[in-house]
């Protein structure tokens, strides 16, 4: 035991001095167990070592406080709102990369090339296979219909995913209609908003409610869960990609993404990692590991995801969602979602 503190201190001193070999330091809002498979492959291909700090909150404040001294090279996040906070605090560097320009569509990156979406997830409706008929619900707006009173479950509105959905409704319906929708939606709830997206599917399985909204990948996680009971939950629900009719806007999508830190000392390596993550092989991995959709238009969606149905996604520039977060939260507070 005695040598351990010593070895830690030695390691720390070593970490202050210049390190041999290329490295890239990552501030991540994504759990290590989800990004490690990507990073291992990256190191294997490029020889660049990766170091990670993971936290759900506060990393932007840390980066800001560290200023020019920050060791961080790259930021990886889920949800456009979180990603945009870094941009808003002016913590990201503009990146000029032909590879990124080619792999990531215009509406899924920052106008100044400061951040880039790396995967897409769709916010979809799930309904009970038994208690809701196919075709009865086709769009998000339907969830405000009075016939579903006491039959809808939801995660709290203040969660980033619901806030982003709310923002997308403000953008497409206008602030007044969006608030009206939210009020009626909350009126239809079977129980106080609670639980994460898994818990919503579980509640439908248990019969506490019949309808909910989840991120598409949760369905995959449940369908292939190690826990047999979770696989049963998945079997009890039908997936609906909302707002698909020819004249409609398409399903709301959110992203995971990343950007290079403004004061990165390893910019070349950081850009290399972003490029790596936008490449076909990695884009496919997002689907295989986490049931997410590729952002790279040249990459095919995995067979599994295809089997859930194809869909058109809302083509709003993703940044507009982040810019409406404040208004969305206001409505959420007002209606008590």
């Amino acid at each position: 035991m005695n040598f351990y503190p010593l070895s830690i201190i030695t390691l720390l001193f070593l970490s202050f001095t210049t390190v041999i070999g290329a490295e890239v330091n990552i501030y991540s809002h994504r759990q290590p167990f989800l990004i490690n498979p990507f990073l291992e492959k990256f190191t294997e291909e490029t020889g660049i070592k990766t170091n990670v700090v993971y936290a759900t909150k506060g990393l932007a404040q840390r980066l800001k406080a560290e200023g020019k001294n920050s060791p961080a090279d790259i930021i990886l996040t889920v949800d456009i709102g979180r990603l945009y906070i870094y941009d808003d605090l002016n913590l990201l560097a503009s990146v000029n990369s032909d590879i990124l320009d080619r792999n990531i569509p215009q509406n899924l990156k920052s106008p100044e090339n400061k951040w880039f979406a790396l995967s897409k997830r769709s916010r979809i409706i799930v309904t009970s296979k038994e208690r809701v008929k196919e075709g009865q619900i086709t769009k998000i707006e339907d969830l405000a219909d009075e016939q579903w009173k006491g039959r809808v479950c939801s995660r709290p509105g203040s969660h980033v995913y619901n806030r982003a959905l709310m923002a997308s409704l403000i953008l497409s319906l206008g602030e007044k209609a969006a608030e009206e929708w939210a009020k009626k939606f909350v009126g239809n709830l079977a129980r106080r908003p609670q639980g994460n997206d898994r818990a919503q599917v579980k509640a439908i399985f248990e019969g506490q409610c019949d309808i909910s909204i989840i991120n598409n990948y949760y369905f995959g996680k449940l369908k292939y869960s190690d826990d047999p009971s979770q696989r049963e939950w998945a079997k009890s629900v039908r997936l609906i990609f909302p707002n698909q009719s020819a004249e409609d806007r398409g399903a709301h999508v959110n992203i995971s993404g990343g950007g290079v830190a403004k004061y990165s000392k390893n910019k070349k390596e950081a850009v290399a990692l972003l490029e790596f993550l936008s490449k076909a092989a990695s884009q496919k991995m997002y689907g295989e590991i986490n049931f997410e959709y590729p952002v790279n238009p040249n990459v095919e969606t995995t067979e599994e995801l295809k089997s859930w149905g194809s869909f058109k996604s809302d083509s709003l520039p993703i940044i507009s969602i982040a810019l409406k977060a404040y208004e969305a939260q206001k409505i959420i507070d007002k209606v008590g979602w």
Partner: peptide, 13 residues
């Protein structure tokens, strides 16, 4: 949890 999470060095769990 929360402080260690935000303040920790790289690769430190």
């Amino acid at each position: 949890l929360p402080m260690t999470l935000i303040l920790r060095p790289f690769n430190f769990e």
